[in-house]
Simulated scan of single mutants.
Amino acid sequence: MIARQRSKKIGLIVLGIFLSLFWFYPFYLVIVNSFKTKSEIFANTLGLPTEGTLENYTEAFIALDFVKSFFNSLFITVSSIFLICIVTSMAAYALSRRQGKTSSAIYFLFAICMLIPFQSIMIPLVPIFGSFDMLNRAGLIIMYLGLGSSLAVFLYFGALRGIPMALDEAAIMDGCNRFQIYWHIILPMLKSTTVTVIVLNAIWFWNDYLLPSLVINKQGMYTIPLKMFYFFGEYSKQWHLALAALVIAIIPIILVYMFLQKYIIKGISEGAVK
């Protein structure tokens, strides 16, 4: 019995190591090849660089116009996430505290909207926003607010079901109005769910290429994924610069994930189970 448990444990460890190596393999290729010249990448893609160079990062930093494109990506990501957290947490709070057919129908409508892919609505959506002159950063932020609200409401609503209404009643007796209850009592208790919403949407918004490519049409407003497209021309592809730029682009979002990862599983379980 003990030998069987040991063999099972060893098998799980070996499987975990194999899956970890399989998952880290693309990151290995990106990081290693970002230090190679273009000719060395094609000559020896899997091996370590013979003469590591940082020139790729310098050229990629300049080609990306990194400071401006970083600010554009940061502004769009932070603004969209801020609006999503505030609007959806208030909506979920109102839906969770009003028991009835109308609130249930609205909640299920949000849940169903998670199943609608953006690709199915992007053709009419972009011309509609264009007709109101709401493209570029403002239009992109509003689109992200609409597209990211369904999952956020679903998570917040599930977490709010675990918060007893007795807290609301006690606060009302102390003289608080509904907004004060939400802002000072409910929202701080949704910390784990809020962090989960932030991380999930930050990864999406920061790395998104399709929607910004349809909405942004001014040079000074390009995000990092849009600027990276210029490394791939019609007749040549600058893989050495593209890989270096990719490493530069993913560092901020990896740091955000590392600092906030302990809240993610807790927030998802609170939003989906309770």
Rank of each mutant, 00 (worst) to 15 (best):
212 P>M: 02
33 N>Q: 04
139 G>H: 03
267 G>L: 09
180 Q>C: 14
206 W>C: 10
104 S>E: 10
24 F>N: 02
86 I>A: 11
102 T>S: 00
1 M>D: 04
111 A>Q: 07
267 G>E: 11
9 K>N: 13
272 A>I: 03
135 L>T: 04
147 L>E: 06
128 I>W: 07
265 I>C: 03
215 V>Q: 07
267 G>T: 13
228 M>E: 07
239 W>C: 11
187 L>H: 02
61 F>L: 13
143 M>D: 06
151 L>D: 02
118 F>R: 00
66 F>I: 14
15 L>T: 15
79 S>V: 09
193 T>F: 11
51 E>M: 04
147 L>F: 12
142 I>P: 04
254 I>Q: 00
4 R>Y: 07
176 C>A: 15
268 I>R: 05
156 Y>M: 06
148 G>N: 06
167 L>N: 08
259 F>A: 14
229 F>V: 09
267 G>Q: 12
267 G>D: 10
105 A>N: 01
187 L>W: 05
219 Q>K: 06
125 L>M: 13
98 R>M: 03
125 L>T: 11
7 S>Y: 14
61 F>A: 03
148 G>R: 09
69 S>A: 13
211 L>I: 14
158 G>L: 10
25 Y>Q: 10
234 E>C: 00
15 L>C: 15
247 V>M: 03
127 P>R: 09
19 L>H: 09
178 R>S: 08
193 T>N: 09
5 Q>T: 07
161 R>S: 15
194 T>L: 14
121 I>T: 06
